[in-house]
């Protein structure tokens, strides 16, 4: 009946946010959401295995905080120009996560953070190629991604 319960609930919620919180829109939105999740099921995407879903809000706030910090850093860099020795560059990082949803989430996090863009993932050796605006300390970037995001993502998508 409901192949993707979270998707159905989110779609219903979205419908009611866009229209209004009334019983009529709840029924209409739920109908649309159920049909949409059936359409999604016929695409047969890989089902994400959420293990510790309660860690998702923690990830959300960590990301929000990090994006705020890198906003300030990148804005400063644009206004004041580069400090001596700072340069942009490519970065290859070996990853351990294999789950596709976790990788997609990590790609979204890294790309929507100003100052880092995810370029490609190599499924052959499980490494990613990134471009960072301020390649001051390579080890620091690698450590941030591996300890801050990858560990948490591996816990969430076990």
């Amino acid at each position: 009946m409901l192949p993707y319960p979270i998707l159905t609930i989110s779609l219903t919620l979205m419908w009611m946010l866009l229209n209004s919180f009334t019983l009529g829109h709840l029924i209409l939105g739920a109908l649309v959401a159920v049909f949409a999740s059936w359409a999604m099921a016929s695409l047969r995407p890989e089902k994400p295995k959420l293990n510790k879903w309660y860690l998702l809000p923690k990830l959300f706030f960590i990301v929000l905080y990090d994006i705020a910090l890198s906003n300030i850093a990148v804005a400063w860099l644009i206004i004041r120009g580069r400090t001596k020795g700072g340069k942009a560059g490519f970065l290859t990082i070996p990853l351990e996560i294999k789950d596709r949803t976790a990788l997609a989430l990590l790609a979204t996090i890294l790309t929507s953070t100003p100052g880092s863009v995810w370029l490609e993932y190599d499924s052959y050796d499980g490494s990613i190629l990134m471009h960072v605006l301020d390649l001051e300390e390579e080890e620091q970037w690698i450590a941030t991604i591996k300890n801050r995001y990858e560990k948490l993502l591996m816990e969430i998508f076990a």
Binding site: V74, T113, P114, H131
Partner: peptide, 15 residues
């Protein structure tokens, strides 16, 4: 450079 320019609009699309 092009790759550096990619980072700037992310300011507008995040915070």
């Amino acid at each position: 450079s092009f790759y550096e320019r990619l980072h700037a609009p992310a300011l507008g699309t995040s915070w």
